[in-house]
Write a protein that binds this DNA or RNA. Structure first.
Lengths: 308, 308
DNA sequence: TAAAAATACTCCATAGGTATTTTAT
DNA sequence: ATAAAATACCTATGGAGTATTTTTA
């Protein structure tokens, strides 16, 4: 169905005057008459009654006008929709992230992006680094906030950009302080106390870099790793600390996660630093991703506080 | 926005092969290539990536495909919609009716019409004859089930067709029988008892024909009209009878309206006959009306039981 | 008789066709 | 060497233009 006669019909239905309708359509009257006639012939029914110097819609024409207008509006909306999709103002962005990002970079990043692109469907999924890398390589998701390995490089399909570098602090059970199992030195955790404790931490396979950072630090102090319990989400790790199962070394932004029974303290010396960054497919041409990367780079949407 | 390139795009998105897409579109490959190129140029972004003997959608193309398909579907649906509107299989029919029709002709008529035309929006409104005639003459509504005047003719703008002729019966209060104010003769109401009672009936202005039929009958028996109460809906009239306010003469189909405290009895002699029929505008070209008239005429939808 | 729609024809823009080249495996 | 897309060029359909006639208030 050619939309031109439909536009002729819709316009004539508004003016009810061939001459003025033709003018509004940017054409002359005769072809408009012919177009309407041809349309009526195709439909097998009259759309207008021409009578006594006046033009009026038939009941049939009046009933058809609504659907015709809707179809034309849908057609016209396509150009604008394309513009928005092309410019990343509409579409879909699937962002995965490690649970630690919940307390540092994620909220501000999402807020900033969503404010600039309110019509983009932003899908947020929490996942461990290994799961995210795996998914991105399979072509799933748009980008992931990960803790990259220091030794193993990322797959070549992926690009990476650092977001934030944070010192680790210790999350220790309040009860241990009350029971004098831990004596803080000027509010800091001393190496002997750390080495005496067992640890709550991520399993190595889920986040090798984080795991290695923690164990490397403890071993560097001359200690032996004793794992009290593993868990793959920060909330769970802190919950286990509050239950007195062990000490956890966590990014300092975790201080935003207050919990009864847990005290956050600095490490006494040479706290290790954890890097969190964004990974995405090098060949991903999605405009929403490009705009997200622009937001991440702080190019738009104001300053990028606390980015590396 | 010309829908032809959009169809090219949608089809190519399915086949991901210029040659086969062109074949399915009933054209040759080169103009398809050009059409897609022109479309991409207009949009300012690539819809497909042509690489290594294969064609794939870009994220932009994939995101745009949905809206394009919807718009094309809306456009394609117009032809079928027009066909249905033209043939009266879709659209709107506004049918008004006097309250007595609720108990006789209306339910079967509506059921039969709706079964044949399930997609027509059927708007039912109860109204008195005078209100219906007035509305139809103003161009409102499609048709009305009315009780036509015997003396005054319908306005020339309207057409009329009889639907049903019914004898009147009497609706009398049960209490009057218990109190011996009424003695039935072989289950019928005798003239003296009728003349002794006051009546519950329609006001003359709402339904002159019905009013005149009742009063003419009573006066023909040598009685004087005493009006206990007027009401414009049959349900109300019967409710007033049940309250012992008077006798009402009603179409025999009202027996379908059983109500405690009300007894329906035949009239002893020469019961008057009430005609109910359908009125519509002679110049109304709505296809839904034409189909409704066909149903009324019993031409389609099986036999037309109890039509005049 | 004047205003508006219909008819008759003319023209040209462009969608699509054919022939051919380029490209990548 | 072959399959597939791009390029080059051509054709003709039909949408819109101009001129004119018909209709009716």
């Amino acid at each position: 169905m050619d939309p031109r006669p439909l536009r002729h019909f819709a316009t004539l239905a508004e003016t009810l005057h061939f001459g003025r309708a033709a003018e509004r359509l940017g054409m002359t009257q005769p072809p408009l008459s012919q177009s309407i006639q041809a349309l009526e012939r195709r439909l097998g029914a009259a759309l207008f009654v021409r009578t006594k110097r006046s033009v009026a819609l038939t009941p049939f024409g009046a009933a058809w006008l609504g659907p015709v207008r809707e179809a034309l509006a849908a057609l016209d909306a396509l150009a604008e929709k394309a513009r928005r999709l092309r410019d990343g103002d509409a579409g879909r962005l699937e962002l995965s992230f490690v649970s630690t990002a919940d307390y540092s970079i994620l909220p501000a990043l999402v807020q900033r992006y969503a404010a600039l692109h309110p019509d983009v469907d932003l899908i947020l999924t929490e996942a461990t680094t290994d799961v995210q890398i795996e998914a991105l390589c399979r072509g799933q998701g748009s980008a992931g906030i990960v803790i990259p390995g220091t030794t193993e490089a990322l797959p070549p399909r992926l690009r990476y950009r650092p977001l934030i570098r944070e010192a680790l602090i210790a999350a220790i059970p309040e009860s241990w302080i009350a029971e004098r199992r831990i004596r803080l030195e000027r509010g800091r955790l001393s190496p002997p106390d750390l080495l005496a404790a067992s640890l709550v931490l991520f399993p190595r396979r889920s986040s090798p870099a984080f795991h290695d950072l923690v164990t490397g630090y403890v071993e560097g102090l001359g200690g032996i790793i004793r794992i009290a319990q593993e868990a793959i989400q920060m909330q769970t790790i802190i919950a286990l600390v509050s239950a007195g199962m062990g000490i956890a070394l966590v990014p300092e932004s975790l201080r935003h996660l207050a919990r009864t029974g847990v005290r956050y303290v600095d490490l006494a010396r040479g706290a290790p630093v954890l890097e969190t960054g964004l990974a995405w497919r090098a060949d991903d041409a999605a405009p929403t991703l490009a705009r997200f990367l622009a937001v991440v780079a702080g190019e738009i949407g104001g300053a990028a506080p606390s980015l590396a």
